[in-house]
């Protein structure tokens, strides 16, 4: 076979593979839609936010408590993780010389690598009993948020770190030449200059928090209710899917696919916002 014919054949194979790889996304969307269609067609989309509660056996599928739980745990986790993550990045960029900064970096990379199921295990055996001492039952919105915060902290820290590292060092020198203190440089120059990237990191982290299943499932108590306090047990959208898929059939199963579809839409919207503000997925 001549070299050009070989290349033409190679290209056909590669195009086939790439087509298959891109088809995965299309298949996922198609199957989510197909599986959720029966229940959407029967009840309409409004049903999922207006029905009288989540009673699958009676055919009422109100997702609002789960949506609220997901939003609340994620928002709280972001509120906790953002200052910590940004502080960690500032520390390794501006304060820690050499080995200490590298060490913190490795701690954060390792933290990013801890499987969520292990964080859930630790949360359930360590954090939940501590919360239980304050207010029973321990498994709660607060526990879920704490574990989630630990999970998404690396995302925020690493994106901020990358953004700070990409600042031209002339900034620092110029500012130092003006007699500004290190703290003034951080507050007045470094943070404003990296605002967009930090925001993108927070958006990516929110997407991860909303999509996370195991860690929240294991520590949040999984009671379907609108949370009234931090110590109330809640069930997130993801936990609901994981808990009920095992035995769900018919409309019940379809409504779980509806929640999966809703979850995907929200998460992808957040990722799109992150991409717009210049964030990049850090495969750490």
């Amino acid at each position: 076979m001549s070299p050009s014919a070989r290349d033409a054949r190679l290209l056909r194979w590669l195009a086939f593979a790439a087509g298959l790889a891109s088809a995965v996304l299309i298949l996922i969307v198609l199957f989510l839609m197909q599986e959720s269609w029966p229940v959407i067609a029967r009840y309409g989309l409004v049903h999922f936010v207006s029905a009288r509660g989540w009673h699958p056996t009676e055919g009422t599928f109100n997702l609002v408590p789960m949506l609220a739980a997901s939003a609340a745990t994620s928002a709280l986790a972001i509120a906790l993780a953002t200052p910590l993550g940004v502080a960690a990045a500032i520390f390794s960029r501006f304060y820690a010389a050499g080995i200490v900064g590298r060490l913190l970096h490795w701690v954060i990379v390792l933290l990013a690598g801890i499987p969520s199921v292990v964080l859930g295990l630790w949360g359930l055996t360590v954090i939940v009993p501590l919360i239980l001492k304050v207010a029973p039952p321990g498994t709660s919105l607060l526990a879920g948020s704490l574990i989630l915060a630990l999970m998404i902290l690396p995302t925020i820290a690493l994106t901020t770190e990358a953004a700070l590292a990409s600042l031209p060092s002339a900034y620092g020198i110029g500012a130092a030449a003006l007699g500004l203190s290190r703290e003034a440089i951080i507050i007045n120059i470094a943070i404003p200059a990296t605002k967009a990237s930090i925001f993108a990191g927070v958006m990516l982290a929110s997407a991860r928090a909303l999509g996370e299943t195991m860690a929240v499932l294991m520590v949040s108590g999984n009671v379907v209710q609108l949370p009234k306090s931090l110590f109330d047990p809640v069930r997130t959208l993801t936990a609901n899917i994981a808990l009920e898929m095992a035995y769900a059939t018919g409309d019940h199963r379809a409504s779980l696919f509806v929640s999966g579809l809703a979850l995907t839409a929200v998460v992808l919207a957040l990722a799109a916002v992150a991409r717009r503000s210049g964030g990049q997925v850090v495969h750490a």
């Binding site: 891109s22 996922i28 999509g211 898929m245 995907t264 990722a271």
Partner: peptide, 27 residues
Amino acid sequence: AGYWIGLSLDILAGVPSIVFGLFGNAF
């Protein structure tokens, strides 16, 4: 072609793992 394939991959990277579970189960 490269743009669309790349975009679909970036979207796929953002899909929550529980959704992969739903898809895997159904498909």
